[in-house]
């Protein structure tokens, strides 16, 4: 059983941003924890979110499904154009996770930042 936890931080950039600090592996077992927590924050008013992945060792396809679902919740316009998410950014995935992000093509839709301030200011 993998352990997985989430720390929530609120930051103020040009807009208020919720930072979810993810700790542990994201697989089919832990993915609902991430998805439910993000949905809860969005229901409570979060409009912009950063997923801090500094402490994520592994992310499987279930994690990508969660990221897609979270972006769907944040992006209420569901515009048809091909564009990067204005509401969800990824911070500091390790090189293994980043490689998978690029292989699956998620980098075309989500900005990947390696500096927290830069991620916050990007909204």
């Amino acid at each position: 059983m993998t352990t997985f936890s989430i720390m929530v931080e609120q930051a103020q950039a040009r807009v208020p941003v919720t930072v979810l600090r993810l700790q542990g592996d994201i697989d089919a077992g832990t993915q609902p924890i991430l998805q439910d927590r993000a949905a809860e924050m969005i229901a409570m008013g979060t409009t912009h979110m950063v997923l801090d992945m500094s402490e994520v060792g592994y992310m499987g396809s279930a994690g990508f499904r969660a990221i897609h679902a979270i972006n769907n919740l944040l992006d209420r316009e569901q515009s048809d154009a091909f564009e990067r998410s204005k509401y969800l950014k990824l911070l500091n995935p390790n090189s293994e996770v980043e490689k998978v992000i690029r292989t699956l093509g998620f980098d075309a839709f989500l900005d990947i930042h390696h500096d927290r301030d830069q991620a916050l200011e990007s909204f």
Partner: peptide, 14 residues
């Protein structure tokens, strides 16, 4: 190597 992203998520993916 990959020439595009996975299928089924982002409607306007090229």
């Amino acid at each position: 190597e990959v020439t595009g992203g996975v299928v089924g998520l982002f409607a306007a993916a090229p």
